[in-house]
Amino acid sequence: MTEYVLFKHPELKIRRENFGGIIKTARGLFLIDKKVYLLLNSIDNKKRYSELAKDKESKMIIDELLKLKVILKIKEKNAERIRDSNQKKAKSL
């Protein structure tokens, strides 16, 4: 099965609130509950899809966030390729 790596949209803004949080995306503002806030907040830099979508509810949330482009995904193999090429570039500088 293809593994995906998830990361937050670079322009995403997240704010914590008592009820969960508010996110600002290109599509507008959304209120999110605590569960969504915690899930989003757990994506520090990047995270594997399988690690995050552990149960049915988390999977539903992640898929919805992907649909809204709050988070983005990339195939793990491609992510590794990009990382390697970036490292090479950095060394050559």
Partner: peptide, 22 residues
């Protein structure tokens, strides 16, 4: 699931699904 709370014109003054937000 609480991410369908699109915040638009009306929702400032509408009771949101997340009751603590109002």
């Amino acid at each position: 699931m609480g991410i369908k709370e699109r915040y638009n014109l009306k929702q400032i003054y509408e009771k949101p699904l997340i009751s603590e937000a109002s």
